[in-house]
Amino acid sequence: MHILLVEDDPLVASGLCAGLALHDFTVDHFSNAKAARSAMFALHSDAVILDLGLPDEDGMSLLREWRARGIHTPVLILTARDAIPDRVAGLHAGADDYLPKPFDLDELVARLKALMRRAAGQAQSVIEHGPLRFDTVTRETYWFDKPVNLPRRELALLEKLLFSRGAILSAGQIKDSLYGFQTDIESNALNVHIHNLRRRLCPEIIQTVRGVGYRLGKLNHAEHGQ
C-alpha cells in the first residue's frame, strides 16, 4: 500500500520512511506543501501522513483543499501540537485520525491499517475471499487453510486487490501502490507479478478488464479444491 508522507523535518521523515518500509508500505516523502500537492494529484496513494507545521503552508489548509476537491484518501495527522483544540480542528478539517508526536511506530502502523480497512469498508482484520484468507494485521495469507508465502510485491498486489473489494483498478493505480514514485521499474514488472500470483493461487484470482485494468476475481470454493 502506498503512503504519501508529508513531513518537513528530515530526521523524522527518514525514520518514518525506514519504519514504514519495514512494514512493507511503499512510502514517498515530501517536505513541503507545494510538493505534496502535486504528488497527491500525480499518485494514487492509499493513505496520507500529514505533518501540520510545514515551512510553506499550514498542513491544515492543504487538507481542507484536498477535501474540498473531493479527494477522500484517508489522512492521518501527525504533529507535535497536541492541544485538544488543535486535534479537534484537525479532525474537523477532514482528517481521519490524529497522532501526536512522539508516537510509537507500531501504533502508527496499526492506525494506518485501520484507516485503510475502514476506507475499504472492512471492519474485521481478516478478509476472506472464497478459499483465500488474508490477515490485514500480520499479512499472513492462507489458501484453503494452508499458509502461502508470497514475495513482497505479490503480497502487496494481492493486498491492494483485496482492499479494493472488486472495484476495477487501473495499472497506474496498482503500480503506484506497489512502487510509488520509484522510476526504475521495468515496463512489464506488473504483468510478471500478476502472472506469478495467478500461478501461485489460481488464474481467476485476478480478472483482467480489457482496456481498463484489473480486479479481484470471483472465486468459487469448490472449483479450486485441491
Binding site: D9, V12, S14, G15, A18, K101, P102, D104, L105
Partner: peptide
C-alpha cells in the same frame, strides 16, 4: 522538543 524526540524514537 517533540520533533527531535520523535526522530530519536522512530530511528
Amino acid at each position: 522538543l517533540r520533533t527531535p524526540l520523535t526522530a530519536i524514537k522512530t530511528h
